[in-house]
Design a protein around this nucleic acid. Structure first.
Length: 880
RNA sequence: GGGCGGAUAGCUCAAUUGGGAGAGCGCUGCCCUUACAAGGCAGAGGUCACAGGUUCGAUCCCUGUUCCGCCUACCA
């Protein structure tokens, strides 16, 4: 039977398309809870339904796939659960932009029609990233794909919401929250990005009410909010201001007076003037201070962050100047008005942090509104414990402290969002009980539920309220934070709240693979929710991988235009090349071709029947490479256990390229490499003699002790030493690379001599040697030999073909060698001359230095002889 | 402001318990040697950020400094 041959170069595209489809058709990635094998499961970090594959996804999913394929080949009952996230704000933004292009808005469409529209979009083009993940070779169980807005997962969301509420871990209330004036929704604390900017610190004169000739100097970075001031605070122990506490100041630009209060928490005596204005409705600290002093909250901004100062009793010209303006536009107006009234003491440059929406980078404003919050401390406590006692391992461990620090200082989680795309909050209010219809929000017509309306939380719409009214129940118009549903992902995807076989088999999952950027957004919340609702951690190991950065170390982002498109890399070099590069952080392209050609070479030489041969019947090169293969199997397996993808890949690279390709070309074992490079290994595996339908389910190689061969490895080391010495001699004497030469080898020990005799032909072949003589004494007789030494062997080089070498250059090379050797000898001698070193260093270190000295000295002597020989040759050469 | 991590070859990074620092890419030179020029062989290139300390000996341990990154924070 003829053996199929490979094409001259590897063509990734055909191979990848073919195998992707066959793997899926054959159901090779499908997991079954009743299958044998210890379960191994991973839930995918669900990509946004709007997303497309970027290099971060490629890295994240490559690493997961390596783990999954490896464990599957090890015979584990392996599940990789795929799916997508509905990404509330991001997705809503996408569809709203489409509407804008069509000249309409979501408000014009109405909630129902808008949501239909989003679903339509999702069905049509929402799954781009899934097909891209398939192209990456991700061996997910695609039959089980989930979406956070699926009915099952939505049920889980409602269940969790109701139970949290029953347990007093969820409440609704009016608080100051982070508000994005562009997305028109509340954000949680961690959805705000802080950016350091240089603003101005304004010092403003607030006249005392009972003596307007006297001023209290107040420092602020946000002068426009002064219209909402309801007090000024000083430190109660500050001698400068103590006597003013209880008095009032006239609030500039308004007709109001406000009290001076003493507050040791808010006021830092060292900063600014030591007096600070309090604006409880527009600043988080001031909100707290306002509570302490029972101050009124005066709202002066609308949801677009435009000034609405009706209630502020602003002076008419002030009102006229700033009403309806954005913060950015109002600030210089206020500054000018203060200057006009001679109330601005100074304005100095000042560094400060500015909060921006992580989705759209709009400046967020603290805004007073009714929102839903998760009472997080009782959930955080067990989640801290789980990491502290190691039920969840964070790898690398350096991030553990990061997690613990954040969790210990965690704040209540604002989970309501004022958008439409998402899980609508399962809470109802009775307008009949309330006594009047709820107001309609001006922006979108949704009901504006007052803080004091009685709330009914239930999984489905109740038939009637507690008092039996059934005709005017209104559902909360808000939806939940996207991360609320993704926090449930490890168990909601497995069927919870139903007690499914999947849940029983695959929960807790084995490993979570993610980037650091969502440690708090997602990982921490999954741990909290998993412990609360499953009574067990959601995963054993969290592996946190690096974020992919560009040449300047910047995060990649579309707006910076510094993204590497993984699809482009796959196009150019193939998927396996991308995967291996990401795993190893090596450079792309070459490795696949190397493997391809090694396999090609093998196939050219494969013929006849292949019988199983025991190791001791094998040839020397066979025994050596098997022993090295064994070592590689052990290393790769060990490194994968420890999530050292980089070291595992470099071990594979080292073995395949340098040991297998460079030194041994007679056989191949692609299976070990399969998890890293699934396509090319599958393709090669099928051309090789094999049993079974796919490499995907082949047993992962394990080291077998009968392949270990210390003798073969030692013998090969000697062979290599000889070859390296001949190469060195070639280099020094600058012979052309291809020229075949004579050498004479001398072994210092009888055992080494027999190795040389045994492998004479191999050395001749690898060293491109015409004839290797093996002598008993090194030939140092002038003028015929150059002798080099290393470890156990001397190599003598007959000085022949002198016409083809540059003697002058050779001399230079030898002198250079001598020079550097002498330097080393000097250092070694100095050390050995130090009596303290000899006395205190461990004996083996001293011995090592002595041996080094002997070796180095001998090499100098040999090179000096060589120098004489060359000089002599030069003379002969000249005289002829 | 606080915390964490980092600074090693031109670039990206290794070096597990303190005893002459390595790889990949890039660079230089020589080779199209029938598996592979996306290749082979050889080579150059490092005050291990800086200053002290401990030690016979420090890239490694300790202290301080500088610079960079990330997280976090209410100096208005």
């Amino acid at each position: 039977m003829s053996i199929p041959q490979l094409e001259k170069t590897y063509s990734p595209h055909d191979v990848e398309d073919r195998w992707s489809q066959r793997w899926i058709d054959a159901g090779l990635f499908h997991a079954n809870p009743t299958d044998s094998g210890q379960p191994y499961s991973i839930v995918i970090p669900p990509p946004n339904v709007t997303g497309s594959l970027h290099v971060g996804h490629a890295l994240n999913n490559t690493l997961q796939d390596i783990l999954i394929r490896w464990r599957r080949m090890q015979g584990r009952n392996t599940l990789w659960m795929p799916g997508m996230d509905h990404a509330g704000i991001a997705t809503q933004n996408v569809v709203e932009r489409q509407l804008q292009a069509e000249g309409t808005t979501r408000e014009a469409l109405g909630r129902k029609a808008f949501l239909d529209r989003v679903w339509q979009w999702k069905e049509k083009s929402g799954g781009t990233i899934i097909s891209q993940l398939k192209r990456l070779g991700a061996s997910c169980d695609w039959d089980r794909q989930r979406f956070t807005m699926d009915e099952g997962l939505s049920e889980a969301v409602r269940e969790v919401f109701v139970r949290l509420h029953e347990d007093g871990l969820l409440y609704r209330g009016e608080r100051l929250i982070n508000w994005c004036p562009r997305c028109l929704t509340a954000l949680s604390d961690i959805e705000v990005e802080h950016e350091e900017i240089t603003g101005k610190l304004y010092t403003i004169r607030y006249p005392l009410a009972d003596d307007p000739s006297q001023f209290l100097l107040v420092a602020t970075t946000r002068p426009e909010t002064m219209l909402g001031d309801t007090a000024v605070a000083v430190h109660p122990e500050d001698e400068r201001y103590r006597h003013l506490i209880g008095k009032r100041v006239r609030l500039p630009l308004t007709t109001r007076t406000i009290p001076i209060v003493g507050d040791s928490i808010l006021v830092d005596r060292e900063f600014g003037t030591g007096a600070v204005k309090i604006t409880p409705a527009h600043d988080f600290n001031d909100f707290e201070a306002g509570m302490r002093h029972a101050l009124p909250r005066l709202k002066i901004m609308d949801i677009h962050a435009n000034l609405r100062v009706e209630g502020a009793l602003a002076e008419p010209n002030v009102m006229e100047a700033v009403e309806g303006l954005s913060v950015a536009k109002a600030r210089p107006k206020i500054e000018q008005l203060l200057i006009d009234q001679d109330l601005l003491e100074k304005a100095e440059p000042h560094k400060m942090a500015l909060g921006k929406c992580y989705r759209c980078k709009t400046v967020v404003e603290p805004l007073l509104s009714d929102q839903w919050f998760v009472n997080i401390k009782p959930l955080a406590e067990p989640a801290i414990q789980a990491v502290e006692d190691g039920r969840v391992r964070i790898i690398p461990e350096a991030w553990k402290n990061n997690y613990l620090g954040w969790m210990r200082d965690i704040k209540d989680w604002c989970v309501s969002r004022q958008i439409w795309w998402g899980h609508q909050i399962p809470a109802w209010y009775c307008e009949t009980c309330y006594g009047s219809p709820f107001l309609r929000r001006s922006s979108d017509g949704a009901p504006l539920i007052p803080s004091d309306a009685t709330v009914i939380v239930a999984k489905t719409k109740p038939g009637a309220c507690a008092k039996g009214h059934s005709d005017a129940l209104v559902q909360d118009p808000d939806v939940l934070d996207t991360w609320f549903s993704s926090a449930l992902w490890p168990f909601s995807t497995l069927g919870w709240p139903q007690q499914t076989a999947e849940l029983k088999t695959y929960y807790p999952t084995s490993t979570l693979v993610t980037g650091l950027d969502i440690l708090f957004f997602w990982v921490a919340r999954m741990i909290m929710m998993g412990l609360k609702f499953m009574g067990e951690v959601p995963f054993r190991d969290v592996y946190i991988h690096a974020l992919v950065r560009d040449a300047e170390g910047q995060k990649m982002s579309k707006s910076k235009g510094n993204v590497i498109d993984p699809l482009h890399v796959m196009e150019q070099y193939g998927t396996d090349a991308l995967r291996f590069t990401l795993a190893a952080m090596a450079s792309p392209g070459r490795f696949t071709n190397k493997i391809w050609n090694a396999a090609r070479f093998l196939l050219m030489h494969l013929d006849g029947e292949r019988a199983e041969v025991t190791p001791d019947q094998r040839s020397f090169p066979d025994r050596w490479i098997l022993s090295r293969l064994n070592a590689t199997i052990r290393t790769v397996t060990q490194e994968l256990e420890e999530y050292r993808f980089d070291r595992a890949s470099s071990a594979l690279y080292q073995f395949i390229w340098h040991e297998y390709c460079d030194k041994y070309i007679e056989m191949i074992k692609p299976a070990l490499l399969h998890p890293f490079m699934p396509f090319i290994t599958e393709e090669i595996w099928h051309t090789l003699p094999h049993e079974g339908a796919s490499i995907v389910r082949q047993p992962y190689p394990t080291a077998r002790s009968d392949w270990d061969s210390k003798e073969a490895e030692e013998e090969f080391a000697t062979v290599e030493e000889c070859v390296e010495l001949t190469n060195l001699a070639r280099g020094i004497l600058n012979y052309p690379a291809g020229q075949r030469l004579h050498f004479k080898g001398h072994a210092k020990a009888e055992q080494t001599r027999s190795i040389l005799l045994k492998h004479r032909q191999l050395i001749e072949h690898l060293g491109n040697i015409d004839h290797l003589m093996i002598g008993t004494t090194p030939e140092t007789t002038m003028p015929h030999f150059l002798v080099l030494t290393r470890g156990s062997v001397d190599m003598c080089r007959t000085l022949e073909h002198m016409e083809s070498i540059d003697l002058h250059k050779a001399k230079e090379n030898v002198l250079k060698q001598i020079e550097s050797l002498k330097k080393e000898v000097g250092r070694t001698q100095q050390k050995l001359g130090n009596s303290e070193f000899v006395a205190k260093a461990p004996p083996e270190v001293v011995t090592d230095h002595q041996e080094r000295l002997t070796r180095e000295s001998r090499m100098i002597r040999l090179f000096e002889q060589a120098l004489q020989q060359i000089t002599l040759e030069q003379r002969i050469h000249h005289s002829t």
